[in-house]
Amino acid sequence: MADLPSPNQRRGLVAIDGAMALMVILLVVQIWLLSATLEGFLAGHHGVALPAAIFSGLLFAACVTIDAFVERVDRESRKD
């Protein structure tokens, strides 16, 4: 029978699952942002491209940060 995860590992798994859910939400927002920007661009509203690109960059930075967090939590929970 497989070993049961330690309390620390369980906490780590919960944190990673939460982080993953947050990343999925951020990605959905980013997909919506891209489609809305493209729609605006095709409609001749070129002014939306710059703020959209900045916001998309911030969302990407948030995703990378969360990814680094997942990496760290995973590493720490494996120490047990």
Binding site: I16, M20, M23, L38, A52
Partner: peptide, 26 residues
């Protein structure tokens, strides 16, 4: 889970690249 979060980060990079492409077009 780590592979999946990496995939999500890559997808996010793709969305960002798309926005940059639109910006370059303007």
């Amino acid at each position: 889970r780590r592979q999946f979060t990496k995939f999500l980060s890559l997808a996010s990079l793709g969305m960002f690249a798309g926005n940059l492409w639109i910006l370059a077009k303007t």
